[in-house]
């Protein structure tokens, strides 16, 4: 019986060494999958970028025109968890998504800079807001 136990142990050890590559890879894969799931699905630990409506009369807006119609937008970057907490899954028609609140992490609103981008639209001379 002692011999059988020792034999099984040696066999298991040999099996492990022969397949060590796959065991290590599998371990780290599992850890990564868990880590990724936790970060993105549970914690929403990432930044989101989106383009929000912009009023060219009051703000310096980016412009995108197709045919005869043009869209004016500003670029917003915010921490996903904050946006999710404030607006849920859908950020359309959500005021909090369009502004940087006091507690917002990594929040920035980028307006079009006439000195950099020629495709800007600023109908009135309002100040550019930056947080």
């Amino acid at each position: 019986m002692m011999y059988n136990r020792k034999y099984n142990y040696m066999k298991t050890k040999q099996h492990f060494y022969n397949h060590i590559f796959f065991y290590i890879i599998s371990f780290f894969l599992l850890v990564t999958i868990f880590n990724s799931f936790y970060r993105f699905i549970i914690k929403n630990d990432y930044i989101v970028y989106y383009e929000d409506k912009c009023d060219p009369y009051t703000e310096s807006c980016f412009m995108s025109c197709e045919a005869d119609s043009c869209i004016y937008y500003k670029k917003i970057q915010k921490y996903a968890l904050n946006v999710y907490t404030e607006c849920g899954n859908n950020i359309t028609n959500c005021y909090q998504a369009s502004v940087c609140l006091k507690n917002d992490k990594n929040c920035s609103i980028t307006y079009c800079n006439l000195n950099i981008d020629s495709n800007c639209e600023f109908i009135n001379n309002s100040r550019i807001q930056n947080n």
Binding site: I24, I25, F28, L29, V31, T32, N35, S36, R39, F40, Y46, I47, V48, Y49, Y50, E51, Q77, A80, I91
Partner: peptide, 21 residues
């Protein structure tokens, strides 16, 4: 060679954000 890819894939070194537009 492969472990850095596996370990760093879910971190900020690989992906820091998402473009909803």
């Amino acid at each position: 060679l492969i472990l850095p890819v596996i370990i760093l894939a879910p971190t900020y070194i690989n992906l820091s954000g998402f473009n909803l537009a």
